[in-house]
Design a protein around this nucleic acid. Structure first.
Lengths: 232, 232
DNA sequence: CCATTTTTCGAGCGATCGCTCGAAAAATGG
DNA sequence: CCATTTTTCGAGCGATCGCTCGAAAAATGG
């Protein structure tokens, strides 16, 4: 459903380069993308155990094999590197969550399921990026924190819009809580925030997606649309 | 339902002192508790905007009015201060979530509702402490991170136990997802992690608790126990 | 009131941080 | 092959960090 080719490190760094042509000094695209991949890979890896703040640029230099001075050809401050990564995550969310085909868009239940499925699979594919964004966004300058907040609100608004349409057309209960979209979001986030827990317990991504969809269905579908699974 | 007197800064710092008698140099209880309150209050406040790592001990000294040297009478390293705060949060969760009276304990549905209610209200009362623990725990030494993980797993096990009992006695669906406890936890956390969002939208704590309880009911109660709220 | 204990103070330490800059190395193109 | 451009390098900068320690101030108790 999601083409993995779209989210390779090279594809994402290529996109990062386009977005930051003005701050990246290196002129030749080939050179720039290759080094960006190395730098970003090392940065995500190092931030995984420690944190972005705790990672020094000397650590990053050693892990990436790019000299201290060399790093500054790709960003003009450590905060800029942070912003580049956060922006890439936010823009991928915006793009990927907007791509619902028309036939799915026409059915609120299917559309809600689609949003849940897409979000979980996107965060799975870009797991390191999302963990990074979630953990680091809080600790940094106002502008960067704002970016993270906006991205989260956008995700929530995708959900809220579909739910509102579903209530309107009678697929969802009329008494569906206005908080529902707010509650689905932390459930989506848990998949990557607590990824290691689910891995340890052997929870497959398909199981997680289906469990979440069913949980949400029970919370907001009208009884007519709800499959009755009474067992025993 | 929760006595606020139990969770005043003074009560919590008094408890912290008992737990760390060996590392705190100051001998007179009266002195120690008073200064601890000042120090911890300032530390939580400063970590709110920046982060614990980004907060320097000079910042803390200035904000609390305690000199650099004076601080070290209350902890022997910055990490110890972190550990003291995290421990206090974890122990309060452990205590407060274990106090269900027998009559509630005997009814799984009531007990689950009680756990949800208690957790949300505890995190509301100790909001700064919980936000701190959630944001900071990831960034720090292995031992401290482990403590946070253990605490979260404990909370989850409280939920899982009650759900298992509920399934056994037929109050909860037999096909209740084994993931349910894992999914409730991020919903509980969202209340304090995204507290400012809910405040901005004017969501009252009672509404949040009830919405959450209802959402969970729909997800796991057998139809017999589920109040039918079909409207229009 | 004074001897003793307890608490508080803050200048100064070594280490590490983000970042710079002039020079070296590599790539390019005629 | 060589002149020019582009990329990479790493020692060194000022600033700030966690932490120490000897001395001053405050509290205690007979």
């Amino acid at each position: 459903m999601l083409d993995p080719e779209r989210f390779t490190m090279e594809a994402l760094c290529s996109s990062m380069l386009d977005r930051h042509r003005d701050t990246i000094v290196v002129k030749k695209r080939e050179f720039a993308v290759r080094k960006l991949c190395v730098i970003v890979t090392a940065a995500l890896q190092l931030s995984r155990n420690k944190s972005f703040q705790a990672m020094s640029l000397r650590d990053l230099s050693a892990a990436s094999g790019v000299s201290m001075g060399g790093l500054y050809a790709y960003f003009d401050s450590k905060t800029t590197l942070l912003r580049m990564i956060l922006t890439e995550v936010a823009e991928q969310v915006r793009t990927v969550m907007s791509e619902a085909p028309d036939d799915i868009r026409s059915d609120p239940v299917a559309h809600l399921d689609w949003l849940i499925d897409r979000h979980v699979r996107l965060t799975e594919t870009m797991q390191l990026w999302f963990s990074f964004a979630f953990v680091e966004a809080k600790n940094f300058p106002v502008a960067e924190r704002r970016m993270a907040t906006d991205s989260e609100e956008l995700t929530e608004s995708f959900l809220a819009d579909v739910i509102a349409r579903g209530v309107e057309c009678g697929a969802f209960r009329a008494d569906t809580s206005p908080l529902l979209a707010s509650l689905i979001k932390p459930l989506l986030q848990d998949w990557y925030v607590k990824r290691s827990k689910y891995r340890r317990r052997g929870v497959e991504i398909n199981v997680y997606v289906e469990t979440l969809q069913q949980f949400v269905h029970r919370g907001c579908l009208t009884p007519d649309n709800l499959p009755s699974r009474r067992s025993r």
